[in-house]
Amino acid sequence: MLVLTAIAVVRMRSLFAIAMLSGVFSLLSALLFVTMDAVDVAFTEAAVGAGISTVLVLGTLALTSRFEKPTKRSPMVPLFVVLVTGAALIYGTLDMPNFGSPDAPVQTHVGPDYLERSVEEIDIPNVVTSILASYRGYDTLGETAVVFTAGIGVLLLISGLRLRRRRDDEDEDESEEV
């Protein structure tokens, strides 16, 4: 299903349909996350991917254009690059542990340690929250700062504050040239 949706995105030319399909893609991947026990992640993906990002893409479309122009470049070079990269990736997965195996390296280091210690040290049922906010508090502080910075960036780029200043700058430039 996910692959089909992704290929439909490749083929489509109407950007409106692409925005909708990317929402569908997010919902499907949220379902996949639920089946892989990551309920928190699925929750976030459903809210962010299907909710906010679709609205933002639609907002961009309203400010730009609705259809994609067909390109004249041949698709062979990108296809070659993609196939080579894909082959390299699959070669890399050959000695990965099996899906769901309990003795994979991921499962034998800090993960179970957090699960055990969280019971007495933090004492809240949702281990994801306890790792997020407590054991990895620095990480989360950093992520919050990234979100903050991205918000500031968007405001600087398109909130209109900049337009006003640029108009002033242009006026100054003209007066200097005179």
Partner: peptide
């Protein structure tokens, strides 16, 4: 730890709400 996690999550929630709404305002 309970209080700390609540406080920190509140901070995260405020920032994320405000950033998303600010981005929406900027686009709209």
């Amino acid at each position: 730890q309970h209080y700390g996690i609540l406080a920190v999550e509140l901070g995260v929630g405020i920032t994320v709400t405000a950033v998303m709404v600010a981005i929406y305002y900027a686009f709209a």
